[in-house]
C-alpha cells in the first residue's frame, strides 16, 4: 500500500501518544488504493496488549471516507513493546478480508517500524508499506 508521509507520521504520532497502551485507527484509501487519511480512533480496551476500535468512531470514519469518495482499506494498531508482526490474537480477530492490517512497532522507541499484512482465513501475507515523500 502506498502511504503518504503525512499519513504515515500521523499513525506513528497516534501510536506514541497512546503509550503504554496500544493505539488503533483506520486508514482510508482512494480508488487507486493509495492511503488518503489516518483516522486515529479510541482503543476501547485501553490496554498495552489489546485493542478494539470504538464502533461509533468506526462508523463515523466510514461515513467520512465515503463522503470523500474513499473507502476504508486498512486498520492499524501499535505494539508498544513488541515487533510489528501479527500476534495469534491479531490473526484470530482479523475479520475483514478486504483490509490491510497495519502494525506499528514502537520498540525501540526511537526507531518505530510499520508493516502491513493481509490476513485471510488465518493465513498471513505481508504486503509492503511504501511511504511516499511529502
Amino acid at each position: 500500500m502506498e502511504v503518504p508521509a503525512a499519513v504515515y507520521e500521523e499513525m506513528i504520532r497516534h501510536a506514541r501518544s497512546a503509550v503504554p497502551a496500544e493505539a488503533c485507527g483506520l486508514l482510508a484509501a482512494g480508488p487507486d488504493g493509495k492511503a488518503t487519511r489516518a483516522y486515529c480512533l479510541t482503543n476501547l480496551d485501553a490496554s498495552p496488549v489489546a485493542y478494539t476500535v470504538d464502533p461509533s468512531e468506526h462508523i463515523g470514519a466510514l461515513h467520512d471516507a465515503e463522503g470523500h469518495g474513499w473507502h476504508l482499506a486498512a486498520v492499524f494498531h501499535s505494539h508498544p513493546a513488541g515487533p510489528p508482526v501479527p500476534s495469534a490474537t491479531d490473526v484470530a480477530k482479523a475479520l475483514e478480508p478486504a483490509w490491510l492490517y497495519v502494525i506499528i512497532g514502537l520498540a525501540p522507541a526511537d526507531r518505530p517500524s510499520v508493516r502491513g499484512f493481509r490476513i485471510v482465513d488465518g493465513v498471513v501475507t505481508e504486503e509492503p508499506i511504501a511511504v511516499e515523500a511529502a
Partner: peptide, 12 residues
C-alpha cells in the same frame, strides 16, 4: 442498516 465487524486484536 450497516453491519460492521469489530476491528480488534492486540499483541497478546
Amino acid at each position: 442498516i450497516i453491519i460492521l465487524p469489530a476491528a480488534a486484536g492486540g499483541a497478546r
